[in-house]
Design a protein around this nucleic acid. Structure first.
Length: 310
RNA sequence: GGAGGAGUGCCCGAGUGGCUAAAGGGGGCGGACUGUAAAUCCGUUGGCUUCGCCUACAAUGGUUCGAAUCCAUUCUCCUCCA
């Protein structure tokens, strides 16, 4: 029998942290983060990481876990998360996966096979291919993929250079990238109770706009400056997150602080929209809309629903 | 009071007689997604009974076969001189 886990997802700024902690306490669960940015050490403000007080209430896994200078990938996340889940299960507690990184969630929900670890040359080879696209054109790179892996070429748009390069790099090593929709049909190793939190679009956007202001007040600029002093550059993956890349622009004199703040708000709204698109494909998800609801009432409803299902 | 300049779709902005429901950008909305995923990429954006019709480039009237584009008047805004 597959072990039962709970997963709570939803767009950024919907209120996952808050509700998840209440739920975890109510059902004796521990939290496994499913967030590609909160994973990194030192990215506290910009990633909206749960506070020390919040983390003191429930054990959190995969928050503050890795160094922002290194590389990371879904495959690595999958391993780390499965280890954390096993650890929680051994304690006799329920793993509660929570976060808004759709791809990472899929890696746990479905049988996504990432194959062997890529060779060390992967990164440079892919960079090479991207450079090729810059000089020879996107179509030229896509044509190479067409020869190596026609199936992949057919479903990846030529302008999506990052993905064309990735598929090509895999094809050159004799691997094929499995289409996403195939894996989605298969169930993964866990029996997942999938919950989605949502709000009306306008309210969500208002919350996002407000939260960005709070991040700035909380010292986001200093946080980014410190990271830069630690040696991180905008090339590091962790610095490509929303809230970081825009502040880099400000620190580099490319734009004013107000413009950077506007860009953070805008990019966060876009991100939330993309997340909703992703989550809409889950047909077994139970949605709770938080708009216009009393907080205690909705919390109770959520906990009750979970208890009935467990 | 006088002299110039400007008013374009949700916003910015191009367009100086037909090829304009109007370039481009932003924003909004929708979508894709298997090793950077808070990434990367695609589509759409006046209305309708949608191979056609209607309403549109401040307003009204005019010139013309034809006007966002030319003329007149009105309104609003900006700059400069008093």
């Amino acid at each position: 029998m597959r072990p039962r886990i709970i997963a709570v997802t939803g767009p950024t700024a919907v209120g996952k942290t808050e509700y998840t902690i209440k739920l975890a306490r109510a059902v004796n669960a521990e939290i496994v983060s499913c967030d590609s940015m909160q994973l990194y050490k030192y990215l506290d403000i910009g990633s909206a990481k749960p506070t020390a007080e919040e983390r003191a209430q429930v054990r959190h896994y995969l928050v503050d876990e890795i160094d922002p200078a290194g590389d990371f990938s879904v495959a690595k996340y999958k391993r780390l998360a499965e280890n954390a889940i096993d650890e929680i299960l051994e304690k006799g507690k329920i793993p509660l996966v929570t976060g808004g990184t759709g791809l990472y969630l899929d890696a746990l929900l479905y049988d996504m096979d990432f194959g062997p670890q890529p060779a060390d040359t992967t990164k440079s080879r892919r960079a090479e291919l991207i450079r090729f696209a810059e000089t020879e054109g996107n179509e030229a790179l896509h044509a190479l993929l067409e020869k190596e892996d026609p199936d992949a070429a057919a479903r990846i748009h030529p302008n999506n250079v990052v993905r064309v390069a990735r598929a090509l790099e895999a094809a050159e090593r004799g691997e094929k990238i499995a289409p996403f929709r195939d894996s989605r049909k298969k169930s993964g190793k866990y029996d997942v109770l999938l919950i989605g939190l949502t709000r009306d679009r306008q309210e969500l956007y208002d919350r996002i706009n407000m939260r960005v202001g709070m991040m700035l007040e909380a010292g986001l600029v200093d946080e980014v400056r410190d990271l830069r002093d630690k040696g991180l550059t905008r090339e590091d993956i962790a610095m490509k997150g929303i809230g970081y890349k825009e502040i880099f622009d400000y620190l580099d004199g490319i734009c004013t602080l107000d413009e950077a703040a506007d860009n953070i708000r805008k990019n966060t709204r876009h991100f939330a929209k993309r997340q909703m698109t992703w989550f809409r494909k889950y047909d077994d998800i139970k949605w709770f809309c938080l708009t216009g609801r009393n907080e205690d009432e909705i919390t109770e409803e959520l906990i009750e629903w979970v208890r009935r299902k467990l």
